[in-house]
């Protein structure tokens, strides 16, 4: 069990390199997002894709140090949320100091129950992680999502002078409105 835990500092960083892990149970958005992420020219961005954690042991040696773990949750699917939730325990607590973020898609969909969004927000807030909303249907939306992730990734990989992942996450972490458990009337 201990062996399968993903750790933030178990390997040496590469020069001018940032590594991001996209975890999505449905594998719909991650490939698109990965293609856009690697277009970044200022640094070398390595993108790793996974359906869920833990990661398979056989790639352990070749896997670079992961600087940022992104959980992509499709709000229209309960399974997507459950899978992300189950994967969380395979992460070293050190990741939760600014090296994890949640990205939600389909939040605008009318069929999404508000309880699910609230549950995701609660999860992100309890882990002090940022919660990003992304539009996965349009190219602009994908570019936007990729840009936001890159900003966090560069900091998490230590490529931005005078900024650290913990410092950034203290500013960007998801916070809950105090009245989230109140029934809403709209």
């Amino acid at each position: 069990m201990k062996m399968s835990l993903l750790k933030p500092f178990s390997k040496l960083p590469g020069l001018n390199t940032a590594n991001i892990l996209l975890v999505e149970s449905e594998e719909q958005f991650q490939q698109n997002l990965a293609d856009t992420l690697v277009e970044e020219t200022a640094v070398t961005v390595n993108v790793r894709l996974a359906k869920s954690l833990p990661l398979p042991m056989e790639n352990e040696e070749s896997r670079p140090r992961i600087d940022l773990v992104v959980f992509i949750i499709n709000l229209t699917s309960e399974l997507s949320f459950r899978s992300a939730e189950a994967s969380l325990k395979y992460l070293d607590p050190g990741y939760f100091l600014g090296k994890v973020c949640f990205m939600v898609t389909n939040a605008r969909n009318a069929s999404v129950p508000t309880e699910r969004l609230d549950a995701v927000r609660k999860l992100a807030a309890s882990l002090h992680c940022p919660l990003l909303f992304a539009e996965d249907q349009t190219p602009d939306g994908v570019t936007n999502a990729a840009e936001r992730l890159l900003t966090i990734l560069k900091v998490a990989a230590g490529l931005v002078p005078m900024a650290t992942a913990l410092y950034l996450s203290n500013l960007t972490r998801c916070t809950l409105p105090p009245d989230i458990d109140q029934p809403s009337f709209d």
Partner: peptide, 17 residues
């Protein structure tokens, strides 16, 4: 590694960090 599943403890760790 100091494993802590407890979210309360995690928050304290975070504060310390």
């Amino acid at each position: 590694p100091d494993l802590c599943e407890n979210p309360q403890e995690q928050s304290v760790n975070r504060l310390m960090a």
